[in-house]
Design a protein around this nucleic acid. Structure first.
Lengths: 154, 154
DNA sequence: CCTACATTCTCTAGTGACTAGAGGAGCAAG
DNA sequence: CTTGCTCCTCTAGTCACTAGAGAATGTAGG
């Protein structure tokens, strides 16, 4: 029966342990970022080998996968911290989780709306450019004078 | 005939001069930000009064309005720096201006696309939440396991 | 056993575009 | 002359990392 390195227990089930580089490969999070997450308390300090190297178990890998996925979806670190905290109380209500997710959705919506407005403005500006000399460039002119704009939301 | 403070010329036309606070009010850029723009070389160092206070002319106000508007449209400082440089050569071709603007438009488009994909993911995740206990929460489950996702672009 | 090379360690500093605050001086009005 | 506003410089903080230096440890091949 094959065993992973540095198994500490004598029981039948042996928890797998991984070096930071392995964890980085398995989660898609870079090594310095993992250490950074530890430094801000998002990830618990792992045990160390005698030489001082970090050793992670599978739970830490899962946690990091969660963090990565949430980051990819645009959640902020503090939101993720709260989500992880809530996940630690399985019998609690998921109302706050829902609330955080909905707030994030609203945030995404407002960013989309804003970018769409910018897009209209940019498109308009570019379409008026006659590709001539700088002194005749409508792009610069519009940038110089807000009153040419369609919206004043920005 | 009313005159602005500290006029330095004896000619008929007198250049208006403004304190930094006035400029901030007229451009909508905060005082520390104006000083910041000066520190990074985006805005030329203005003349000073004997006591060391910054004094701006109308050209500086126009430049700051340009900067503000471009920032509002999402241009980066370095892009704005280049646009201002190009604006300084009125007989040159506006091809590069057009190019910068189009690159920015493409950037906006890709951000919109990305946010829309995130939106779909978030919406999906939230709609599956049954508002029960944390241990049954689909949101946490999806966050834990990327394979539930529709896309793997993120 | 020795030698490469890879991996890991800690620490500091840099990114972008500001923002906040301390501590001090100038200036105009009452 | 005092009150209160504006202005000055300087440092440090924000967010979520990323880059790099310099040293130690681990591993594979000869």
């Amino acid at each position: 029966m094959p065993r992973k390195s540095s198994n500490t227990g004598e029981t039948g089930e042996v928890a797998a342990s991984h070096a930071i580089g392995t964890v980085a490969r398995r989660t898609g999070i870079k090594v310095p970022t993992i250490r950074y997450y530890e430094s801000i308390g998002l990830l618990r300090e792992p045990v160390r080998t005698e030489a001082g190297r970090r050793v992670y178990d599978d739970a830490a890998v899962s946690r990091l996968k969660f963090i990565r996925h949430a980051r990819e979806l645009g959640f902020e670190i503090e939101q993720i911290r709260r989500l992880l905290e809530l996940a630690g109380e399985p019998q609690g209500s998921c109302a706050e989780i829902d609330k955080i997710a909905k707030a994030h959705l609203a945030d995404i919506d407002s960013r989309i709306a804003r970018l769409k407005a910018l897009r209209v403005e940019m498109q308009h500006m570019i379409s008026e450019c006659a590709h001539g000399k700088v002194c005749e460039c409508r792009i610069l002119e519009v940038l110089s004078n807000h009153s040419y704009c369609q919206h004043d939301k920005h």
